[in-house]
Amino acid sequence: MIWPFRRRNTAPDLDPALWRQAAAGLPWLRTLDPARDQRLQALVAAFLAGKAITPLRGLRLNDVQRLRLAMLCCLPLLEFGREGLHGWRELLVYPDAFRVQRSHQDAHGVLHEWDDDMIGEAWEHGPVILSWADVRADIAAPRDGFCVVAHEIAHKLDALDGAMDGTPPLPRDWQLQWASDFQRAYDALCARVDAGDDSPIDDYATESPEEFFAVCTEYHFSDPARLRDAMPEVAAHLQRFYGAPLLA
């Protein structure tokens, strides 16, 4: 991957009228107190200064839509801060779901190849990729348990310590407690799904510890009550990490 080189010494000024227009279309911003709103504006300004938003396959994004994408990407960073923007430089946006070619060589040396239809992806050392149609669907139904932008930003936060394992960079004592509580909740969910029981959250969370963290992040932003009922320890960690849920 070849990245365009850009140097900007200062973050751009955000037009207040444009900010209000963009914010009015995002349910998560309606409950922001003034202090968190100011932090979000600073994060969004840094995001726009340091990252390219690149629409693909004929998609056109106006200034309000670009600003909303930046806002959504920065909401999970309200407590973590600007360090959460490190490690990537481009947001790629497809009009709809996109297809990715996969390959895997098994233990017998046989190469398996297949196509995955994706609505979002975060490369460990590359861009975040989103389906615009699915971002819009999440905005239209913000309490349905899905938030693709939060999911992919969770992966980016997870990768900051060099290991995609479901544990983002944290102070040592908190990291140990986080890892213990998340592993216990993950194991319990996997056992429940393996037994054929209904999952209290999207069973994609059982794919791996990192997907468990990302899916739980979606619930923090879209259905925090369900997450609290199903996994109170996990919900408490995420509230400390992301701040109080914006859709209580």
Rank of each mutant, 00 (worst) to 15 (best):
P200L: 15
T206Q: 10
Y204C: 07
Q183R: 12
A188P: 02
Q183A: 10
A159K: 12
Q183L: 09
D173A: 10
P200C: 04
Q183T: 14
L170F: 00
A191E: 13
L170Q: 00
P200W: 03
C190H: 04
F182R: 14
I153W: 06
S180I: 15
S199P: 11
D202I: 09
E210G: 12
F182Y: 13
D173Y: 03
D173V: 13
F213G: 01
S199C: 08
R184D: 15
Y186S: 04
P171T: 14
A154Y: 04
S180W: 14
D203C: 06
S199I: 07
D173R: 14
T206Y: 12
H155K: 02
E210L: 09
F213I: 03
P168C: 13
W174C: 11
R184H: 07
D181M: 07
A205P: 00
D181P: 12
A179R: 15
V193S: 07
H155W: 03
D165P: 08
P209A: 09
A159F: 08
E211H: 15
E211L: 03
W174V: 13
A188W: 02
W174D: 15
V193Q: 04
D198F: 10
D198N: 14
W178T: 06
G196Y: 01
D203R: 12
I153N: 03
F182E: 06
P209F: 02
C190E: 06
V193T: 09
Y186N: 02
Q175L: 10
A159N: 15
A179G: 15
